[in-house]
Computed example of a mutant assay.
Amino acid sequence: MSKLITTRRKLIAGIGSSVLLAGCDSWSRSDRVKNILASAEGLTMRAQRLVTDRNALAREYTMADLSPSFRANGSRTADSVEGSEYQAMLANGFADFRLRVDGLVSRPLSLSLADLRAMPSRTQITRHDCVEGWSAIGQWKGTPLSRVLDLAGLRDNANYIVFHCADTLGRQNRPYYESIDLIDAFHPQTILAYDMNGAAVPERHGAPIRARVERQLGYKHAKFVMRLEAVASLDGIYGGKGGYWEDVGDYAWYAGI
């Protein structure tokens, strides 16, 4: 069975010799890469769900293991039309920030950064693995996503959590978003991080809130999170494939490692 559990990390290493990797947001668009990742998605997800405890933790490290530098993946700022609101919040230290939690919930929420900081928190030192092959170890502190979802009260027909973000990408300025299922949403290491390496998450890393989904690759760790939406299906949400990169055909929806 262990031979069936081929992780994204091993796949990337295997194709790295033939593809030049220049950055998460400029990842090679080669059909070979897309086909390899897509063909492995179902196998990886089924195998991990079958043989791995849904609460199994990603490896955690010590302060001595922190990377001296931590590259920023994806957008470095929210510079869209919608991002003008973000820039105003950035200027006033996110005093006006509100995280909306809605969709298939019993109690829609509007949480300030102070509200999130007042909730029970989790601190973890983990390794960020980017789809383009680099990694870095950082310390993250934030509110467990499960706490927020419990407060909102998920309805029985909710199956996914969608992260709606303040940034856009591409020539068409498509809104950036990502999504995970409830197994990952309620995983103890899935947090809404507001601190990185002992200080507030910096702008380039997704301030004020960045999702940390430690058992998946870095593009699933949505930055500049403004809204959480509980949904029954991903159909009809933007391109319908569960995320910006998934919609444009570059990455698979499930990025488990």
Rank of each mutant, 00 (worst) to 15 (best):
Ser2Leu: 14
Lys3His: 09
Arg9Val: 08
Ala13Trp: 08
Gly14Lys: 00
Asp25Val: 07
Asp25Met: 11
Arg32Val: 08
Val33Asp: 08
Leu37Cys: 10
Leu37Gln: 08
Ala38Thr: 02
Ala38Ile: 00
Met45Glu: 13
Gln48Asp: 13
Thr52Leu: 14
Asp53Ala: 10
Asp53Tyr: 00
Thr62Leu: 11
Met63Ala: 13
Met63Tyr: 13
Ala64Thr: 04
Asp65Met: 00
Leu66Ala: 01
Ala72Phe: 12
Gly74Glu: 04
Thr77Gln: 13
Asp79Val: 08
Ser80Asp: 15
Val81Ile: 12
Val81Cys: 05
Ser84Lys: 15
Tyr86Leu: 02
Gln87Ser: 10
Ala88Glu: 15
Asn92Pro: 01
Phe97Ile: 04
Arg100Lys: 15
Gly103Glu: 15
Val105Asn: 12
Val105Leu: 13
Ser110Asp: 10
Ser112Leu: 03
Asp115Gly: 02
Met119Leu: 13
Arg127Met: 12
Cys130Ile: 00
Val131Asn: 11
Glu132Lys: 11
Gly133Ile: 02
Ile137Pro: 03
Trp140Arg: 09
Lys141Asp: 13
Gly142Phe: 06
Ser146Asn: 12
Val148Trp: 06
Val148Arg: 11
Leu151Ile: 04
Ala152Pro: 03
Gly153His: 09
Arg155Pro: 08
Asp156Lys: 01
Ala158Asn: 10
Ile161Met: 09
Cys165Ser: 07
Ala166Ile: 06
Leu169His: 10
Pro175Thr: 07
Glu178Asp: 14
Asp181Ile: 00
Asp184Ala: 09
Ala185Glu: 07
His187Asp: 09
Gln189Asp: 06
Gly198Leu: 05
Ala200His: 01
Val201Phe: 02
Val201Ile: 06
Glu203Asn: 12
Pro208Glu: 06
Arg212Leu: 14
Arg212His: 04
Glu214Phe: 05
Ala222Lys: 03
Ala222Glu: 12
Lys223Val: 03
Val225Met: 06
Met226Cys: 14
Arg227Asp: 05
Leu228Gly: 09
Ala230Trp: 13
Asp235Leu: 03
Ile237Trp: 04
Gly242Arg: 01
Tyr244Asp: 10
Val248Glu: 08
Gly249Cys: 03
Tyr251His: 12
Ala255Gln: 07
